[in-house]
Design a protein around this nucleic acid. Structure first.
Length: 494
RNA sequence: GGCGCCAUAGUCUAUCGGUUAGGACGCCGCCCUUUCAAGGCGGAGAGACGGGUUCAACUCCCGUUGGCGCUACCA
């Protein structure tokens, strides 16, 4: 049941990123629509951290996401950093709430404890796969009586809580842009609601929180369409009114696959380090959200708020067109006064602290003041023009070289923090893996990161450049060698 | 494999049955200009395919094909 945007309830939207990696432009995109929709209707926009995945969530990532979103210029009325009347806004701080609701479902018979081992589940799926059947929970623990279930749980046996799903019937999902989407209940899995560590899965947490936080419109990525029936079912089990749903198309790589780090820069902070203005980035994303009247493609968030119409959002997955972003950014740069341009440039990469550090690194390596710019220039650049020839001086053959670049890139990505110590440890580790003296290997990294085999210290340079720019430089360096295939990635990562 | 979403130029899009299918990025050309940009002007370039419905289909319906998503004790 859809709520009218002009209905009695105050409109409340949210963006709910999971702190499991670098802040993604997709998050900014989803945040932007939710922000504008809330503003358009005089409502509230909430930021909630979905960190129920204990293994992958990190505080570093959460901090980075808040920082990136703040940089973009978006702000939220409630969130982990600003508080609000519906807190806490970090799901790991709400664990007890989910357990309570899971118990409620258990008591009402809408959910059951599942004691199946991962091994059994894996074997079950393998069999279903082999038989060409749909893969879903077979209902094994559905037969455990409530009494036995309670007893086994009390005895300390490990279990998860799964939701029950009707065996037949159809669930109609009302999507604000797509209309009615029918799902046979028989194709809906008995989703795990509470994991054996006592934390909820997205499905439970999201429904409980959206209800308690009085979210009226859930505007999220298309990847959630197929789990919408589960969510709707949970609202029904709880006796709650579901929010209106809207699924946004996913941002794509130029080859139309889902925008991914392996093929493209996806980090918000990458765009910041490259020197894009946040207003240009938001304008670019806004272009994917609201059709621009002819010749009026340059507009700010205020205009987007006016133009936004969820039902009119184009549903084809838009390719993230970096060339158009470049053009837009140029437009914004040109619109700045010289004073503004200088101020923004200074704030971007020429702040006193950074310059001091660079000066110290460069001091012993320059003989004239005029040497400074050529020596440190790469620290203020985006992508570097490196070719195969740039690596000519290295003693490594192409394959080892590719591996050296790729391993460094992936291993650095896997690190929680990115500073000179981490960089040093990781790069030297790659040397050990490849059984190459670091002295020979470092040259490769110097070329890829600084564009030259002779420049300021590598580890400091990389820290100064930052994770996102370094990743991109690795990618660019790998390019003339044909990149790395997904298959190789799998092999090399072992 | 199963389920679902999507489908106008290379890319982002307009069109809500009747248009020479409009705009933007990119590309090409011209103008401006000491160069290069920027800016101005112009150009090439699109309805995936096959069936219906209709006086009329890019637009509605069905199928095919293709792309994408989901198919975890990840979100």
């Amino acid at each position: 049941m859809n709520l009218s945007p002009t209905g009695a309830r105050r409109v409340r939207t949210r963006v709910a990123p999971s702190p499991t990696g670098d802040p993604h432009v997709g998050t900014a995109y989803v945040a932007l629509v939710n922000y504008c929709f809330a503003r358009k209707h005089g409502g509230d926009f909430i930021l909630r951290i979905e960190d129920t995945d204990r293994a992958r969530s990190t505080p570093e990532s959460e901090r980075a996401i808040l920082e990136a979103l703040h940089w973009s210029g978006l702000s939220w009325d409630e969130g982990p950093d600003v508080g609000g009347p519906f807190g806490p806004y970090r799901q790991s701080d709400r664990s007890a709430i989910y357990v309570r609701y899971a118990d409620e479902l258990l008591a009402s018979g809408h959910a059951f404890r599942c004691f199946c081992t991962p091994e059994r589940l894996e074997a079950m799926r393998a069999a279903q796969r082999a038989a060409g059947q749909q893969q879903k929970y077979d209902g094994h623990c559905l037969t455990v009586s409530p009494e036995e279930s309670a007893r086994r749980a009390a005895a300390g046996e490990s279990f998860v809580v799964r939701m029950k799903v009707p065996e037949s019937g159809v669930c109609i999902v009302h999507d604000l842009a797509r209309g009615e989407i029918p799902f046979e209940f028989s194709t809906v899995d008995m989703q795990v609601l509470l994991k054996s560590d006592g934390l909820p899965t997205y499905h439970l947490a999201n429904v409980v929180d959206d209800h308690l936080m009085e979210i009226t419109h859930v505007i999220r990525g298309e990847e959630w369409v197929s789990s919408a029936p589960k969510h709707l079912l949970l609202y029904e089990y709880f006796g709650w009114e579901p929010p209106a749903l809207m699924h946004l198309p996913l941002l794509r790589n130029p080859d139309k696959s889902k925008l991914s780090k392996r093929k493209n820069p996806t980090g918000i902070l990458f765009y910041e380090r490259m020197g894009y203005l946040p207003e240009a980035l938001l304008n670019f994303l806004g272009l994917l959200l609201a059709p621009a009247p002819e010749g009026q493609e340059i507009f700010g968030v205020d205009v987007l708020i006016e133009r936004l119409d969820l039902a009119k959002i184009s549903l084809g997955g838009p390719v993230f067109d970096a060339a158009k972003l470049d053009w837009l950014n140029g437009q914004y740069l040109r619109a700045l006064t010289t004073d503004e341009l200088l101020a923004r440039t200074a704030a971007w990469g020429f702040d006193r602290t950074r310059l001091e550090r660079i000066a110290e690194l460069a001091k012993s390596r320059i003989e004239r003041l005029s040497d400074l710019a050529p020596t440190a220039g790469y620290l203020f650049a985006g992508r570097l023009a490196v070719t195969k020839d740039s690596f000519a001086g290295t003693k490594l053959d192409d394959d080892v070289l590719r591996k050296a670049l790729a391993l460094a890139m992936w291993r650095l990505d896997a690190e929680r923090t990115f500073d000179k110590e981490v960089v040093e440890r990781v790069l030297k580790g790659v040397g050990e893996t490849l059984a190459v003296k670091f002295r020979d290997l470092s040259r490769v990294y110097y070329v890829a990161m600084t564009g030259s085999a002779t420049s300021l210290p590598l580890f400091d340079s990389m820290e100064l450049l930052g994770r996102d720019l370094c990743r991109e430089r690795f990618r660019v360096a790998l390019d003339p060698f044909g990149g790395v295939s997904a298959k190789e990635q799998k092999e090399w990562m072992r």
